[in-house]
């Protein structure tokens, strides 16, 4: 990200030069993500939000593949351009196939892409949590509790919930996708 601010941007993405003192440790050596560079406007929130997001969306009891399925699928359902583009690249990095990624993005058949019964239940759960407006249907809740340990269900649900928060954040603030990510997606035939 350039140190120069886009005058058309809804909020400034703080470059390294303008990063508040307590935000600097989140900038690392490379280019900060737009989420980091925007949250830096409120460093006391950045200090709690980024570790939370990292913990909620990173691997714990569930592995990276499962987490990326949850993040990408939720982001596609919420139509978050930034999150879909960014996590398409991440999903490919952690080993999801092009067909699996396309299916999660709503550009292919999920049943064809995912043959594992447990993953299919997880995806159904993700869809219900991401799009639902009330309790999850009892039949799906039963299937999920049979396929997943309780702690896995908690972790998966929190991953979807945290992604929903980020989806709305990134979409409302119209955060820009990095040029490197866009170039990579274009090379792979993704929008």
């Amino acid at each position: 990200m350039s140190e120069e601010q886009d005058p058309e941007a809804l909020v400034s993405l703080l470059g390294r030069e303008q990063a508040p003192l307590l935000a600097r440790r989140f900038y690392g050596e490379g280019t900060p993500s737009p989420i980091t560079a925007s949250l830096a406007q409120v460093p006391e929130l950045l200090e709690v939000a980024l570790p939370f997001v990292g913990a909620a969306l990173g691997p714990a009891g569930l592995d990276e593949r499962t987490k990326e399925i949850a993040i990408l699928r939720t982001s596609a359902l919420l139509e978050c351009r930034y999150c879909v583009q960014t996590h398409t690249a991440v999903a490919l990095d952690v080993g999801l196939s092009t067909g699996e990624v396309r299916a999660l993005r709503g550009e292919g058949d999920l049943d064809e892409a995912f043959s594992d019964a447990r993953e299919r239940v997880m995806i159904a759960w993700i869809d219900a949590v991401a799009l639902g407006r009330g309790p999850v249907a009892p039949e799906l809740a039963t299937r999920a509790s049979e396929a997943l340990e309780e702690h896995e269900l908690v972790e998966l649900t929190l991953a979807v919930s945290a992604t929903l928060m980020l989806n709305r954040y990134c979409t409302a603030l119209d955060l820009p996708t990095g040029a490197d990510t866009l170039a990579r997606l274009a090379a792979g035939g993704f929008a």
Partner: peptide, 24 residues
């Protein structure tokens, strides 16, 4: 534009939070 490079926190109340951040 307001410079943010030496911003400690947006929170000023309670003051103890901002003061604690400054001490850190």
């Amino acid at each position: 534009r307001l410079d943010t490079d030496l911003l400690v926190s947006r929170t000023t109340s309670p003051l103890s939070a901002a003061a604690g951040s400054l001490v850190r």
